[in-house]
Structure formats: C-alpha cells, structure tokens
Design a protein around this nucleic acid. Structure first.
Length: 296
DNA sequence: CGTAAGTCTTCTATATGCTT
DNA sequence: AAGCATATAGAAGACTTACG
C-alpha cells in the first residue's frame, strides 16, 4: 500500500456523496461529472479495502465502514483547512463586513461563519441584517465587503444555490371563496418575493389584496402565522405555524429563488479576507435544498 | 542535468441498464 | 419516462524513465 493511504480529494468527494445522498448531486458539489465521482468512489473503496457506499432504492447511503471513514474524513479535511489557514493567518487579520437577509443570516449563515472563524481566529466578522435593497445600497456605497442576496443574476455575483419559493400560510387561513381576494402579507417594495407572488397571482387571474405590509420579516412571519394572510418566501426559518399552502389554497406554483454572493466592486481594503470568505461560502455552497424529513 | 518518449492517472462524453 | 449509477473509449496532463 503506497503512502498516503487515503487521497484527500477522494475523502472530500466521499463526504459530499454522503451529505448529498447520491453521486449526481455530489458531482455538482465538487465540480466533477457523475462518472468521475463514481470512479473516485471506486478508487477510494480500493484504498479502504472495503465497500463504503451501498444502494438503498435510488439513493446511495454509506455502509458501516463508510460511516466510520466519513467521520475520519471530516476531521482530516478540517485539519487540512486549519493547516492551510495557519500558514496564511499572519496575512489575515482584519474585518470582513457581510450583509444578509434575516432568514439567511439566522438559519444558514451562523454555521458557515463559525466554520470560517475557526480557521481564521484573527478575523473579525461584522454581519449586517437588512433587506436586499438596503444591502445593495450598502455594497455600492462601500459599507459592506460581501452580501448574500436573493434575486436575478448580476455580473460578478456567484450563485450559492437555489431555494424553493413557496406559498406559506397558517392552517387557520381559509381558502378564499370563488372571486374572493386572497389576503397577502408581504414586504414593502422593492422585494423579489413580493413581485413574484403578485405576478404569479395576476398571471393566474386570481384576485388578491394586501392584508399587511411591513419592512420587518419577523412581523411578516408573525402576521402570517396568526392567519392574517398568505405570504411567499423560502421555507428557511419560517415559524412552525406556517405551512406550505399553495396546493390547499389553489395557488400557482412559484419559481425557485437564487441566492447570490455579491462583493463590492471596490477592490481595496480587506480584499484578501473577503475573497477568502467568499471562497469558503462558494466552495461549500451548502444551501440546504430541502432538509431530510421536511414535507412538501 | 535537461529533455524527449513512454506510461500512468484521471478526467469528460456518451451509452447502458436499473429503480421508482 | 425520469432520475440515477456505472461502463467504456478517448483525451489531457502528470509522472517516470532513458538517453545525450
């Protein structure tokens, strides 16, 4: 057996395969074709000397040996990241200012930032929670280095992932009678979710009315949860009382929204740090498509 | 020591078969 | 029929070896 026993890139792919639950999705994560990933897993099984993955229906799940190796692989990859970061640490002391919408900042970002901070203890992160319009303005004004934004493609922005956009409502909100307008709970404009919701209803010829608008996501969640109206958003961070309600209320399907990583065009100041954080987020692009166990 | 030729490794593209 | 894993052929790059 040649040294080393295990190739780090193969372990990285194994972790991606187990996390993604299949080789096709793993391939997208690691930037290879599915066949290359399949070959990598065969090579890794040869290195391990035993089967690491097995089929379960259409999914691929780890064997007991695979699970043990994944646990080691995570530690090895973490150590690799730390070793790399340690060599760069001296060049990397400073502040990164990152903006994000509230649901992203609360539900997705903390884990990613903690991971980043572990490997770069001398970096201070400043997270700004604002609506997209305010974040765009702050980015343009040089008050942010990076921003996570929902919406359309902008040159220079990196796609982090796609999230389903759904109609969300309390079970207490009745289906409107024929011809009755659907009460909506939405952000003030400009808002990508608001525009998409209204366009979808208008496109389907369904009447609607604004029951409440607010600049605060918490107010929207609480109002919708109380049954004031339906809202359109990703399910990320939605309170438990809000359920996907498109089918029950007879509403048109909504296209998924894309989450983009924008960075300031001002390449000055802590460009290296912002680059490092941007790379860390892009590399993982771990936007949960749908957590296992979630329904519809 | 430097370089050219041969070999090996690993990738993509495409085809195929299995499962749901 | 769609979605997925895998088999195979060929291409590209990395590595090794032989030679001047």
């Amino acid at each position: 057996m040649p040294w080393p026993r295990f190739d780090l890139p193969l372990l990285h792919t194994l972790v991606a395969a187990v996390d993604a639950g299949g080789l096709v999705r793993a391939a997208a994560r690691v930037g290879l074709t599915p066949s290359a990933v399949s070959l990598q897993m065969r090579r890794l099984e040869a290195q391990a000397g035993c089967a690491l993955l097995r089929k379960q229906g259409r999914r691929l799940v780890p064997t007991p040996a695979g699970e043990r190796l994944v646990s080691y692989a995570r530690r090895l990859l973490q150590l690799d990241e730390e070793a790399h970061a340690a060599l760069q640490e001296d060049a990397e002391a400073g502040v990164v200012r990152l903006g994000a919408p509230q649901d992203v900042a609360e539900r997705w970002l903390p884990g990613e930032l903690a991971r980043f901070a572990r490997t770069r203890p001398r970096v201070r992160l400043e997270v700004v929670i604002e609506r997209s319009a305010a974040l765009r303005e702050a980015l343009a004004g040089g008050r942010l280095d990076l921003a996570l934004l929902f919406g359309e493609e902008v040159p220079g922005a990196a796609l982090l992932g796609e999230l389903p956009m759904e109609w969300l409502a309390s079970a207490a909100l009745p289906r409107p009678a024929r011809g009755e307008p659907l009460p909506l709970v939405l952000f003030d404009p400009p808002c990508a979710f608001r525009s998409a919701a209204i366009a979808a209803l208008d496109g389907a010829g369904l009447p609607w009315r604004l029951a409440l608008t607010s600049p605060s996501l918490s107010v929207l969640w609480a109002s919708a949860a109380a049954g004031l109206g339906a809202t359109a958003r990703t399910p990320l961070g939605a309170p438990a009382a809000l359920r996907p309600a498109g089918r029950r209320l007879g509403l048109p399907r909504l296209a998924p929204v894309r989450l983009w990583l924008h960075r300031t065009s001002d390449r000055a100041a802590p460009a290296a740090l912002a680059d490092a954080l941007a790379k860390a987020l892009r590399d993982r692009h771990a936007v949960p498509q749908r957590r296992p166990g979630d329904r519809g």
